[in-house]
Design a protein around this nucleic acid. Structure first.
Lengths: 155, 155
DNA sequence: GCTCGAGTACTCGGATACATGCTGTCCGAGTTCGCTGGG
DNA sequence: CCCAGCGAACTCGGACAGCATGTATCCGAGTACTCGAGC
């Protein structure tokens, strides 16, 4: 099982936007800061816009901004926006294949229930952490250095 | 993010083996019971053998058996065997790209730490449930029906 | 009746296509900012 | 000096390749059971 790398990109971009506080960052700047392919990065950022996590401003000095305060953006929001709302484990009801309908199939599949329980624990943990928590945890030098690097590439 | 369907197959096969209690089940029988492609199913079952979860017996009336008691087989074991030991989220340290080494990079990446915390919750939940729990949860009719179906295809 | 050997059925392990989805790029359309020329 | 118009820079949205991984199949090699022939 693999999570797309866009999740890492999206989280670092949200963290950067929180650090820069209301200063818009364009795709090109993000791509320069993190050495990422600009076109594909833009595609992932647009997913975050569509999910209502970021807003985008066209025109010169445009770019992306957080759509709401970092306290209200959970890691679950970002993961769902970039990986889709589907669960990782998908029950295809193979227990019912090759056999006529039986009364015990009215109850939910125990395997699916067990897997869902684990996935809910994962989602709960993700929903319990916000971008603001990332800001609070990160060392202050990291934020300062990012602001410095940002200032250097907008003359 | 998507989990391979082999996980569902593997868990149902383990549950079936626990129900049948020491009676070997070949790939062909599993494929018939669940209407799955035999060749690919065998490949996934071989992954479980390699992980020490199942044992295989060649020859007539051969097949697969649980390598240890159902109480000692966790869902985490099965998922790891079929999906690999790697974590879903992989930190590629994009925070360090495009910038010279800095002291704050000695501390672990906060984004990776946050994602790892969620993944650990998932793994803990999976490790806390065993195949024996699946047996205990499933309705007794399901086990009886499976034993009946198994007897019918071994004359 | 007993023993040995050949045949059969089965699994193992690897090699090999096929399909799906993630990764990555490109283009046209629309929007905003800044500059410039005319009033 | 003020304002309108034009160009530049930027983002949006979608369409389009390339690639990695999951899905699926097939074949040769090896092993255990069964049947039958010979002693």
């Amino acid at each position: 099982m693999r999570m797309g790398e866009g999740v890492e990109w999206g989280l670092h971009c949200c963290l950067t936007l929180a650090w820069l506080d209301e200063r818009p960052v364009s795709t090109a700047k993000f791509a320069t800061l993190f050495e990422l392919p600009p076109a594909y990065l833009k595609k992932r950022l647009q997913s975050l816009v569509r999910a209502g996590i970021l807003t985008s401003a066209p025109g010169v000095n445009g770019g992306f901004l957080l759509a709401r305060s970092p306290e209200r953006i959970t890691l679950m929001d970002v993961v769902t926006a970039l990986e889709g709302p589907d669960e990782a484990f998908r029950c295809t009801e193979i227990r019912q294949r090759g056999v006529e309908p039986a009364p015990e199939f009215a109850r939910p599949c125990g395997v699916a229930t067990a897997m869902r329980r684990a996935e809910l624990a994962w989602r709960r943990e993700l929903a319990g952490q916000t971008v603001a928590d990332l800001v609070a945890t990160a060392p202050a030098e990291a934020a300062a250095r990012m602001r410095q690097r940002y200032a250097r590439l907008t003359p």
